[in-house]
Write a protein that binds this DNA or RNA. Structure first.
Length: 413
RNA sequence: GUGGGUAUAGCUCAAUGGUAGAGCACUGGACUGUGGCUCCAGGCGUUGCGGGUUCAAGUCCCGUUACCCACCCCA
């Protein structure tokens, strides 16, 4: 093999592509009906946009993003959708509140593993300019109902609140004091997280660390009054929506702009990357990007991961009947063209064989393409004014008139 | 970036250090207007790549690349 696709990329075709398109179409339809507008932003943006939104976690920018320079400016293949969408809202002067849907490829320079690729597709929604807890619940509700329409079921929802900068700061003091005696017992990763991004310690996968965190105070239990109330109301609305969720007080986010509600939809049996939808409230980000104070909430779904987990739960893709026209001899070509037009007009798939090929070759082609019916039209048929219709499943064939074949195609399911 | 596993025909995989094989797929024929079934015929593939050990390496050793899984990270 001389050429190979780059690490972490995939060639998508056939049934898999059809399933992805089915989900995309489903998303457009569903969210349009729920008052969303689709937005398509550039696949690359100025690097400053993401540096600004992600903050001073510069190692993410350097290690995890595809960057390139052009005309002395640095650009980056977008690693996520939210920053671009907010930039577009500000740049185009869209007036909040607005509800936006995006569908597109994202790029992250991570080492690939199960359910993690360097180029992947996300479907995401953002409710921009909505502060009330109802919208936290509504945002999750929309995800649930969308998953319903695409036939996904075996997931569970984890919910938490990580508060605002005020409660986070006081919680930080609390947890620092609490963990100080345990610090030497934590793994080296956790010791680093403790310094750089302390909420992330709860993501540690080591039992020895988790044992300590299990009984440590959680931010969820130490929210300020407003954040606590917001969380309470969110949960009440979720119950009114009849949505089952598990509170996970160790569910956190890596970036600072997240506030209050965070949630993930997870699937068992997916491997280490088991989150199919991740979302949360980000009340600080628009201001961070230079806009007015604008509370927002949204989520994004990884489409490939979704598909990887639920191939069998995809709604059956309707297989349209497939015809093959085997015209024998160039002089009869016009007849085949007419037949094909009629078949396609009726919404069926039709492949036209090469009229210069022997019938045997054309039959083999028909078999190769797994067609349902072959219509043979050669000298014999032309002389008798009929067509030979062969059912490739049963092997039966019969000669029928032009009217009969039109009737057959029109009644074909 | 770190760790473990894997790498043999188009695909899925065999081969106690001793001549590289099978199934499927593919091509042709039996079958000159009929695919699938049956039968017959057709594969010297730099065993990922580069070194080394050995009389002898797909097999052992070192390096390297790619893939898979996990860690880190996760927007």
């Amino acid at each position: 093999m001389i050429y190979q696709r780059p690490r972490g990329t995939r060639d998508i075709y056939g049934d898999e592509l059809e399933r992805i398109e089915l989900i995309n179409r489903g998303a457009r339809e569903f969210f349009k009906l729920n008052g969303f507008t689709e937005i398509r932003t550039p696949t690359f943006e100025s690097i400053e946009l993401f540096v600004r939104s992600i903050g001073l976690h510069t190692d993410i920018v350097e290690k995890e993003m595809y960057t390139f320079e052009h005309d002395k400016k640095m650009f980056v293949l977008r690693p996520e959708g939210t920053a671009s969408v907010l930039r577009a809202v500000l740049e185009n002067g869209l007036k909040p509140p607005c509800r936006l849907l995006y569908i597109g490829q994202m790029f992250r320079k991570e080492r690939p593993q199960k359910g993690r690729y360097r180029e992947f597709q996300q479907i995401g929604v953002e409710l921009i300019g909505e502060a009330a807890p109802f919208y936290d619940a509504e945002c999750i509700n929309l995800a649930v109902r969308f998953l319903d329409t695409i036939g996904a079921t075996h997931y569970f929802i984890e919910l938490n609140s990580i508060g605002c900068p005020v409660c986070r700061q006081s919680y930080k003091n609390m947890i620092e004091n609490y963990l100080k005696p345990y610090l030497p017992n934590l793994c080296s990763d956790c010791q680093r997280r403790f310094e750089k991004n302390f909420l992330r310690i709860f993501d540690c996968k080591k039992d020895s660390c988790q044992k300590i965190y299990e009984v440590a105070p959680k931010i969820t239990d130490n929210l300020c009054e407003e954040c606590g109330l917001h969380y309470q109301k969110t949960k009440e609305f979720l119950k009114k929506f009849n949505i089952n969720f598990e509170e996970n007080k160790k569910l956190v986010r890596g970036l600072d702009y997240y506030t209050r509600t965070v949630f993930e939809f997870k699937l068992k049996g997916l491997g280490a990357q088991d989150t199919i939808i991740a979302g949360g409230r980000y009340d600080l980000l628009v201001k961070e990007l230079g806009g007015d104070n604008t509370p927002c909430i949204g989520w994004a779904m990884g489409v490939e991961r979704m598909l990887l987990a639920l191939p069998e739960l995809q709604p059956e893709i309707k297989k349209s009947k497939k015809f093959f026209i085997a015209v024998i001899g160039e002089s009869l070509f016009d007849e085949g063209v007419k037949l094909r037009e009629m078949i396609i007009k009726n919404g069926f798939i039709c492949i036209h064989g090469n009229p210069l090929d022997k019938i045997k070759t054309q039959m083999k082609d028909a078999h190769h393409y797994k067609v349902d019916y072959v219509i043979i039209y050669g000298e014999d048929e032309a002389a008798q004014g009929v067509y030979t219709l062969k059912n490739m499943m049963t092997g039966e064939q019969k000669k029928i008139s032009q009217n009969e074949i039109i009737q057959f195609i029109e009644q074909c399911q």
